[in-house]
Amino acid sequence: MSKTMTQQEALQEYLLRLADSDMILGQRLCELCGKAPALEEEMALMNVALDLVGQARNWYEYAAELINDGRSADDLAFKRDANRYRNALMVEQPNGDYAVTMGRQFFFDAWHYFTIAALTQAPDERIASIAAKAAKEIQYHLRRSSEWVKRFGDGTEESHQRMQTAVDDLWRFTGEMIEADEVEQQLFKAGIGPDPEQLAADWRGLVNEVLTEATLTPPPEDAWMYRGAKVGHHTEHLGFILAEMQFLPRAYPDAKTW
C-alpha cells in the first residue's frame, strides 16, 4: 500500500478485509450443509455461518456507502474477482476433516475476537455499533471453537493426531492475520482497530493457552508464514470459491433482482 493512502481509503480497504473474511468463512461453512458429524453441529455451523454473512453484509453496506461509486453491498460481494478480495488466507482454506474446520475456525475466531473488541471502541459510530453486535456473536464462536480444539486435542488418540496435524498445516496462514500492514497501522493511529502489537500478543497468548490445555504442541512462532491476501494474492482456492458463490450474478448480468 502506498503511504499516500488517505484515511478514507485505508478505512474502505479495512472494511473490505473484515467483510471478505466473514463472507468467505461463511461460504466455507455453507459447503458443510447436510454433511456435519451430528445434527447439533448442523445447527451450530449454520448459526455461525449466518452470523458471519450477516456481519459481512453490515461491513459491505458501510463500505459501499464510503466507496460511493454506485456499487451496492451485493456488487462488492458478488462482482469482485479474487485479486480484489481481501479476506485472510486462513478462511479460504478447504474444510478438510472436522479438526481442520475447527482449527481454522479457532485461529480466525481468536483474531476476530480481539479485533472486533477493539473496533467497538472506534470513534466512528457506525463501526462501533456493527462491532458491538458482532462482538456478542463472536464470543460464542470463540467459545465453541476453543472447546472443539480441546475436545479433539484431549479426546482420543485419533482426534489428537488429527487436531495436531490441522494446527501444523494451518499455522502458516496465521502470520498475516496478526501482522499489521500500513493500512492497519494508519487506522490504529486514527483510533480505529486494535493496537497491532497488542493484538499479536493477545492472539498468541490465547492460542497458546488453548493449545496447551488441549495437550497440543504449538508450532514455532518463527515458522515460515504464507502472506499476500492483504494485497490480493490468494491461495488457489479462492478463485473456485468465488466461481461458485458468484455464479448467478455473473451468469445473468442483466438480472436486476433475485
Binding site: 451430528a38 453441529e41 472436522y98 484431549d154 485419533e158 482426534s159
Partner: peptide, 15 residues
C-alpha cells in the same frame, strides 16, 4: 456425514 463423523463424536465423548 454420520459415518465420517464417528471419530468426532467419539472424541467428544471421551473428552
Amino acid at each position: 456425514a454420520i459415518d465420517g463423523g464417528a471419530w468426532v463424536r467419539e472424541a467428544a465423548k471421551v473428552y
